[in-house]
Design a protein around this nucleic acid. Sequence first.
DNA 1: CCGTATCCTCCTCGATACTG
DNA 2: CAGTATCGAGGAGGATACGG
Lengths: 132, 132
Amino acid sequence: MATATAAQRRRRAREEFDAFLAACPSRQLLDRLADKWVALILTALAEGEQRYSEIARTIAGVSQKMLTQTLRNLERDGILIRSITPAVPVRVSYRLTPLGESLLPVVRAIKQWAEQNMGAVQDARRRYDTRH
Amino acid sequence: MATATAAQRRRRAREEFDAFLAACPSRQLLDRLADKWVALILTALAEGEQRYSEIARTIAGVSQKMLTQTLRNLERDGILIRSITPAVPVRVSYRLTPLGESLLPVVRAIKQWAEQNMGAVQDARRRYDTRH
DNA sequence: CCGTATCCTCCTCGATACTG
DNA sequence: CAGTATCGAGGAGGATACGG
Protein backbone atom coordinates (compact mmCIF):
# COMPACT_ATOMS: atom_id res chain seq x y z
CA MET A 1 0.00 0.00 0.00
CA ALA A 2 1.39 3.32 -1.12
CA THR A 3 0.42 5.46 1.87
CA ALA A 4 2.06 3.12 4.35
CA THR A 5 5.27 3.20 2.35
CA ALA A 6 5.24 6.98 2.20
CA ALA A 7 4.74 7.15 5.96
CA GLN A 8 7.59 4.72 6.45
CA ARG A 9 9.85 6.79 4.22
CA ARG A 10 9.03 9.92 6.22
CA ARG A 11 9.72 8.13 9.47
CA ARG A 12 13.03 6.85 8.20
CA ALA A 13 14.04 10.26 6.87
CA ARG A 14 13.23 11.77 10.24
CA GLU A 15 15.27 9.18 12.10
CA GLU A 16 18.25 9.83 9.88
CA PHE A 17 17.91 13.56 10.38
CA ASP A 18 17.63 13.12 14.13
CA ALA A 19 20.84 11.13 14.08
CA PHE A 20 22.45 13.89 12.03
CA LEU A 21 21.29 16.53 14.51
CA ALA A 22 22.45 14.48 17.47
CA ALA A 23 25.94 14.38 15.95
CA CYS A 24 25.93 18.02 14.81
CA PRO A 25 28.41 20.11 16.84
CA SER A 26 26.41 23.31 16.47
CA ARG A 27 23.27 21.58 17.65
CA GLN A 28 25.05 20.20 20.70
CA LEU A 29 26.50 23.58 21.60
CA LEU A 30 23.15 25.27 21.11
CA ASP A 31 21.50 22.73 23.38
CA ARG A 32 24.02 23.43 26.12
CA LEU A 33 23.89 27.21 25.82
CA ALA A 34 20.13 27.12 25.79
CA ASP A 35 19.98 25.32 29.12
CA LYS A 36 18.12 27.74 31.31
CA TRP A 37 21.02 28.34 33.70
CA VAL A 38 24.19 27.86 31.62
CA ALA A 39 24.65 31.43 30.39
CA LEU A 40 24.11 32.75 33.89
CA ILE A 41 26.63 30.33 35.38
CA LEU A 42 29.21 31.15 32.72
CA THR A 43 28.70 34.87 33.30
CA ALA A 44 29.00 34.44 37.06
CA LEU A 45 32.22 32.44 36.71
CA ALA A 46 33.66 34.88 34.17
CA GLU A 47 34.79 37.00 37.10
CA GLY A 48 36.67 34.14 38.69
CA GLU A 49 36.29 31.13 40.95
CA GLN A 50 33.10 30.91 42.97
CA ARG A 51 31.76 28.65 45.65
CA TYR A 52 28.56 26.69 45.13
CA SER A 53 26.68 28.86 47.60
CA GLU A 54 27.96 32.05 45.99
CA ILE A 55 26.67 30.99 42.60
CA ALA A 56 23.37 29.99 44.18
CA ARG A 57 23.07 33.45 45.75
CA THR A 58 23.98 35.23 42.50
CA ILE A 59 21.47 33.22 40.49
CA ALA A 60 18.65 33.64 42.96
CA GLY A 61 16.06 31.74 40.94
CA VAL A 62 17.83 28.42 40.49
CA SER A 63 16.86 25.31 42.44
CA GLN A 64 19.53 23.18 44.12
CA LYS A 65 18.72 20.34 41.79
CA MET A 66 19.14 22.34 38.60
CA LEU A 67 22.23 24.18 39.79
CA THR A 68 23.99 20.94 40.69
CA GLN A 69 22.83 19.22 37.52
CA THR A 70 23.93 22.08 35.27
CA LEU A 71 27.30 22.41 37.01
CA ARG A 72 27.86 18.66 36.59
CA ASN A 73 27.06 18.82 32.90
CA LEU A 74 29.46 21.70 32.40
CA GLU A 75 32.14 19.90 34.38
CA ARG A 76 31.63 16.81 32.25
CA ASP A 77 31.98 18.94 29.12
CA GLY A 78 35.31 20.32 30.34
CA ILE A 79 33.85 23.83 30.55
CA LEU A 80 34.54 24.21 34.25
CA ILE A 81 36.47 22.58 37.07
CA ARG A 82 35.03 21.51 40.38
CA SER A 83 37.39 21.46 43.33
CA ILE A 84 36.61 20.22 46.81
CA THR A 85 38.39 21.46 49.89
CA PRO A 86 37.95 18.77 52.54
CA ALA A 87 36.92 20.59 55.70
CA VAL A 88 33.89 20.69 57.92
CA PRO A 89 31.73 21.76 56.29
CA VAL A 90 33.18 20.99 52.89
CA ARG A 91 34.01 23.80 50.52
CA VAL A 92 33.30 23.28 46.82
CA SER A 93 34.49 25.76 44.25
CA TYR A 94 33.98 26.12 40.53
CA ARG A 95 36.08 27.91 37.96
CA LEU A 96 36.18 28.04 34.17
CA THR A 97 38.72 26.05 32.20
CA PRO A 98 40.46 27.67 29.21
CA LEU A 99 37.85 25.89 27.09
CA GLY A 100 35.13 27.50 29.19
CA GLU A 101 36.75 30.91 28.91
CA SER A 102 36.94 30.53 25.15
CA LEU A 103 33.16 30.28 25.21
CA LEU A 104 32.70 33.67 26.85
CA PRO A 105 33.10 35.69 23.62
CA VAL A 106 30.32 33.63 22.06
CA VAL A 107 28.07 34.32 25.03
CA ARG A 108 28.94 38.00 24.83
CA ALA A 109 28.16 38.07 21.11
CA ILE A 110 24.72 36.68 21.87
CA LYS A 111 24.24 39.16 24.69
CA GLN A 112 25.31 42.04 22.49
CA TRP A 113 23.00 41.18 19.61
CA ALA A 114 20.17 40.73 22.08
CA GLU A 115 20.71 44.08 23.77
CA GLN A 116 21.00 45.88 20.44
CA ASN A 117 18.17 44.21 18.58
CA MET A 118 15.61 42.60 20.88
CA GLY A 119 13.90 45.98 21.07
CA ALA A 120 13.29 45.78 17.33
CA VAL A 121 12.04 42.23 17.80
CA GLN A 122 9.59 43.40 20.47
CA ASP A 123 8.33 46.10 18.10
CA ALA A 124 7.92 43.57 15.31
CA ARG A 125 5.93 41.35 17.65
CA ARG A 126 3.60 44.19 18.61
CA ARG A 127 3.02 45.07 14.96
CA TYR A 128 2.40 41.44 14.07
CA ASP A 129 -0.01 40.97 16.97
CA THR A 130 -2.08 44.02 16.10
CA ARG A 131 -2.32 42.94 12.44
CA HIS A 132 -3.37 39.38 13.31
CA MET B 1 6.30 29.09 61.65
CA ALA B 2 9.83 29.67 60.40
CA THR B 3 10.05 26.91 57.78
CA ALA B 4 6.87 28.01 56.04
CA THR B 5 8.16 31.57 55.86
CA ALA B 6 11.48 30.44 54.43
CA ALA B 7 9.68 28.38 51.79
CA GLN B 8 7.53 31.37 50.93
CA ARG B 9 10.59 33.58 50.59
CA ARG B 10 12.20 31.08 48.22
CA ARG B 11 9.05 30.89 46.15
CA ARG B 12 8.84 34.65 45.93
CA ALA B 13 12.53 34.96 45.02
CA ARG B 14 12.02 32.42 42.25
CA GLU B 15 8.99 34.23 40.88
CA GLU B 16 10.91 37.49 40.76
CA PHE B 17 13.81 35.79 39.03
CA ASP B 18 11.50 34.16 36.51
CA ALA B 19 10.05 37.58 35.71
CA PHE B 20 13.57 38.91 35.30
CA LEU B 21 14.48 36.07 32.95
CA ALA B 22 11.29 36.52 30.95
CA ALA B 23 12.25 40.16 30.36
CA CYS B 24 15.94 39.44 29.74
CA PRO B 25 16.86 40.09 26.08
CA SER B 26 19.66 37.52 26.08
CA ARG B 27 17.34 34.87 27.49
CA GLN B 28 14.74 35.60 24.84
CA LEU B 29 17.27 35.41 22.04
CA LEU B 30 18.73 32.21 23.42
CA ASP B 31 15.28 30.66 23.59
CA ARG B 32 14.67 31.51 19.95
CA LEU B 33 18.04 30.32 18.70
CA ALA B 34 17.71 27.13 20.68
CA ASP B 35 14.46 26.22 18.98
CA LYS B 36 15.28 22.98 17.27
CA TRP B 37 14.76 24.28 13.73
CA VAL B 38 15.65 27.97 13.89
CA ALA B 39 19.36 27.74 13.14
CA LEU B 40 18.67 25.42 10.22
CA ILE B 41 16.03 27.73 8.80
CA LEU B 42 18.28 30.77 9.15
CA THR B 43 21.12 28.92 7.45
CA ALA B 44 18.85 27.78 4.64
CA LEU B 45 17.56 31.30 4.07
CA ALA B 46 21.05 32.80 4.26
CA GLU B 47 21.45 31.89 0.60
CA GLY B 48 18.32 33.76 -0.40
CA GLU B 49 14.57 33.45 -0.68
CA GLN B 50 13.11 29.97 -0.48
CA ARG B 51 9.70 28.45 -0.89
CA TYR B 52 8.06 26.54 1.92
CA SER B 53 8.53 23.23 0.15
CA GLU B 54 12.18 23.99 -0.60
CA ILE B 55 12.90 24.61 3.06
CA ALA B 56 11.01 21.45 3.96
CA ARG B 57 13.14 19.46 1.53
CA THR B 58 16.39 20.99 2.78
CA ILE B 59 15.50 20.31 6.40
CA ALA B 60 14.40 16.75 5.82
CA GLY B 61 13.62 15.97 9.45
CA VAL B 62 11.13 18.71 10.23
CA SER B 63 7.40 18.08 10.51
CA GLN B 64 4.92 20.32 8.74
CA LYS B 65 3.60 21.49 12.04
CA MET B 66 6.98 22.53 13.45
CA LEU B 67 8.18 24.12 10.21
CA THR B 68 5.07 26.28 9.95
CA GLN B 69 5.12 27.13 13.64
CA THR B 70 8.80 28.09 13.62
CA LEU B 71 8.45 30.15 10.46
CA ARG B 72 5.49 31.99 12.00
CA ASN B 73 7.45 32.76 15.14
CA LEU B 74 10.35 34.11 13.11
CA GLU B 75 7.99 36.17 10.97
CA ARG B 76 6.39 37.58 14.10
CA ASP B 77 9.84 38.49 15.43
CA GLY B 78 10.66 40.40 12.25
CA ILE B 79 13.44 37.95 11.40
CA LEU B 80 11.94 36.90 8.09
CA ILE B 81 9.24 37.92 5.63
CA ARG B 82 6.53 35.68 4.30
CA SER B 83 5.17 36.52 0.87
CA ILE B 84 2.28 34.85 -0.89
CA THR B 85 1.94 34.73 -4.63
CA PRO B 86 -1.76 34.13 -5.38
CA ALA B 87 -1.84 31.39 -7.97
CA VAL B 88 -3.11 27.86 -8.15
CA PRO B 89 -1.58 26.32 -6.26
CA VAL B 90 -0.41 29.20 -4.08
CA ARG B 91 3.26 29.96 -3.81
CA VAL B 92 4.63 31.02 -0.42
CA SER B 93 8.17 32.30 -0.09
CA TYR B 94 10.32 33.26 2.85
CA ARG B 95 13.33 35.54 2.99
CA LEU B 96 15.37 37.12 5.76
CA THR B 97 14.85 40.74 6.76
CA PRO B 98 17.89 42.94 7.47
CA LEU B 99 17.27 42.12 11.13
CA GLY B 100 17.38 38.43 10.30
CA GLU B 101 20.55 38.86 8.28
CA SER B 102 22.18 40.67 11.18
CA LEU B 103 21.65 37.50 13.17
CA LEU B 104 23.69 35.38 10.78
CA PRO B 105 27.10 36.39 12.19
CA VAL B 106 25.93 35.29 15.64
CA VAL B 107 24.83 31.93 14.26
CA ARG B 108 28.15 31.62 12.46
CA ALA B 109 30.06 32.45 15.66
CA ILE B 110 28.24 29.62 17.41
CA LYS B 111 28.88 27.28 14.50
CA GLN B 112 32.55 28.19 14.44
CA TRP B 113 33.12 27.64 18.15
CA ALA B 114 31.26 24.35 17.92
CA GLU B 115 33.30 23.08 14.99
CA GLN B 116 36.56 24.11 16.62
CA ASN B 117 35.86 22.97 20.15
CA MET B 118 33.14 20.36 20.39
CA GLY B 119 35.81 17.74 19.73
CA ALA B 120 37.50 18.81 22.95
CA VAL B 121 34.15 18.66 24.70
CA GLN B 122 33.61 15.11 23.44
CA ASP B 123 37.04 14.14 24.76
CA ALA B 124 36.26 15.72 28.12
CA ARG B 125 33.02 13.77 28.27
CA ARG B 126 34.78 10.49 27.58
CA ARG B 127 37.37 11.19 30.27
CA TYR B 128 34.67 12.16 32.75
CA ASP B 129 32.60 9.07 31.97
CA THR B 130 35.50 6.68 32.45
CA ARG B 131 36.43 8.30 35.75
CA HIS B 132 32.85 8.18 37.08
C1' DC C 1 27.45 23.19 53.08
C1' DC C 2 26.67 20.61 49.26
C1' DG C 3 24.50 17.72 47.53
C1' DT C 4 20.89 13.05 46.12
C1' DA C 5 16.38 10.90 45.46
C1' DT C 6 11.42 11.05 44.35
C1' DC C 7 7.53 12.65 42.75
C1' DC C 8 4.80 15.50 39.87
C1' DT C 9 3.49 19.01 36.50
C1' DC C 10 3.74 21.58 32.47
C1' DC C 11 4.94 22.09 27.80
C1' DT C 12 7.22 20.92 23.68
C1' DC C 13 7.10 18.31 19.76
C1' DG C 14 5.68 14.50 16.62
C1' DA C 15 1.80 11.63 14.55
C1' DT C 16 -2.19 11.78 12.21
C1' DA C 17 -5.99 13.48 9.77
C1' DC C 18 -8.26 17.09 7.27
C1' DT C 19 -8.71 21.75 4.12
C1' DG C 20 -8.64 25.90 0.67
C1' DC D 1 1.18 23.45 -2.19
C1' DA D 2 0.84 25.11 2.16
C1' DG D 3 -1.15 24.91 5.64
C1' DT D 4 -4.73 23.88 10.35
C1' DA D 5 -6.61 20.92 14.24
C1' DT D 6 -6.27 17.58 17.66
C1' DC D 7 -4.19 14.11 20.48
C1' DG D 8 -0.68 11.79 23.08
C1' DA D 9 4.08 10.59 24.75
C1' DG D 10 8.28 12.11 26.79
C1' DG D 11 11.36 15.09 28.98
C1' DA D 12 12.74 19.33 31.47
C1' DG D 13 12.57 21.31 35.56
C1' DG D 14 10.52 22.55 40.30
C1' DA D 15 8.93 20.93 45.23
C1' DT D 16 10.07 18.39 48.84
C1' DA D 17 12.50 15.41 51.81
C1' DC D 18 16.66 13.21 53.25
C1' DG D 19 22.07 12.22 53.64
C1' DG D 20 27.38 12.68 54.35
